[in-house]
């Protein structure tokens, strides 16, 4: 049993390497092949033709693209991510702290989304078509229909301008402040829990129709035992994958929320880099974002294998 598992894990990691190579090629093609664009990005739109050519020559931009690609990739591995024009510091100095801030935001969002959506999904899926099922489903449709920027606007209107309970800006200028984290996390949770809850519900509802659950009921086991000992274990396998794959969608909300509340995070950084054509910063941010996304996908696959005995023992 050990060897196939190892092969599986190695295959997934190989797949991850393949994806990262493809993505790095894409990013390079998009941002670095047009050398004129790089020069304009670094020297600004008012630089002269001559200045740009001098800069390009000095930085080796007139060499063939494949040489530059390999150099670019190897610089990534040494941690040299280039210089941010917008912030006038090395990219690494600004990006890693921002990524940490976003990790804090994402952690607290997930810490609420996971238990909340699992409980709601299980409650709804236990009895398909029951009033509690319908109520949860409707709540989920409602919350996923409101875009994050609208949720942010509604929450701000109520809690910031109306009740004056919470600050409307989460810039954390005077150090870390829990109160400023509440609204961004609340917006992320509101938009994202619905999807996970619906997936959990579907998974739970499917398990409840299986023969072994019926057998357990017919044996005369109490409802509570059937749910907690028989149904839950299998019903929670699918949501596990959904939760890990949630990263890609959470990032959607993270960018909106960081922009809306001026939170100094990774998403806001990527947006600012893009709006200001800060090329090295865009490259580093998008590579890191894809790396995290692909890692969670590989983790989801491996975790799924461990959780699902039908795959584990094949």
């Amino acid at each position: 049993m050990q060897i196939p598992v190892l092969v599986f894990v190695l295959k997934r990691i190989g797949y991850m390497v393949f994806t990262m190579v493809a993505v790095s090629l894409l990013v390079f093609l998009l941002l670095e092949v047009n050398v004129e664009g790089v020069a304009v990005g670094v020297l600004g739109p008012y630089s002269t033709e001559e200045q740009r050519n001098l800069w390009l020559e000095a930085n080796g931009y007139f060499r063939p693209a494949y040489v530059r690609y390999f150099e670019w990739v190897s610089r990534f591995f040494t941690g040299d991510l280039g210089h941010s024009v917008r912030f006038n510091v090395p990219v690494a100095d600004i990006m890693w702290p921002r990524l940490w801030n976003t990790a804090i935001l994402g952690f607290w969002a997930m810490a609420i989304i996971i238990p909340m959506s699992l409980v709601l999904g299980v409650l709804a899926g236990m009895k398909e078509g029951s009033p509690q099922d319908r109520a949860v489903s409707l709540l989920c449709i409602l919350t996923v229909s409101v875009p994050e920027f609208a949720t942010a606007t509604f929450f701000s209107a109520v809690f910031v301008f109306g009740l004056k309970w919470l600050p409307g800006i989460s810039a954390m200028t005077d150090g870390f402040d829990w109160v400023q984290l509440i609204l961004p996390v609340a917006v992320l949770v509101t938009y994202d829990f619905g999807y996970v809850a619906r997936m959990t519900r579907a998974s739970m509802a499917e398990v409840m129709t299986t023969a072994y659950i019926r057998t357990a009921f017919l044996k005369g086991l109490p409802y509570r035992i059937v749910i907690s000992k028989h149904a839950l274990r299998n019903a929670l396998i699918a949501p596990f994958t959904v939760i890990l794959l949630q990263f890609n969608w959470l990032l959607n909300g993270v960018i909106v929320v960081e922009f809306a509340f001026a939170y100094k995070g990774f998403g806001a950084l990527l947006l600012e880099a893009s709006l200001n054509e800060d090329i090295y910063l865009i490259e580093a941010c998008s590579m890191v974002a894809v790396f995290v996304a692909v890692s969670t996908q590989v983790l989801a696959d491996i975790g799924y294998m461990y959780l699902n005995p039908r795959i584990r023992f094949k």
């Binding site: 993505v23 894409l26 890609n248 969608w249 990032l251 893009s274 865009i282 894809v290």
Partner: peptide, 19 residues
């Protein structure tokens, strides 16, 4: 398709439309 789907969609939008 897998390669494109491995991008978080919002990153794809921001980078492409930004460029």
């Amino acid at each position: 398709g897998d390669v494109i789907l491995s991008f978080p969609p919002i990153v794809l939008y921001i980078v492409i439309i930004g460029v």
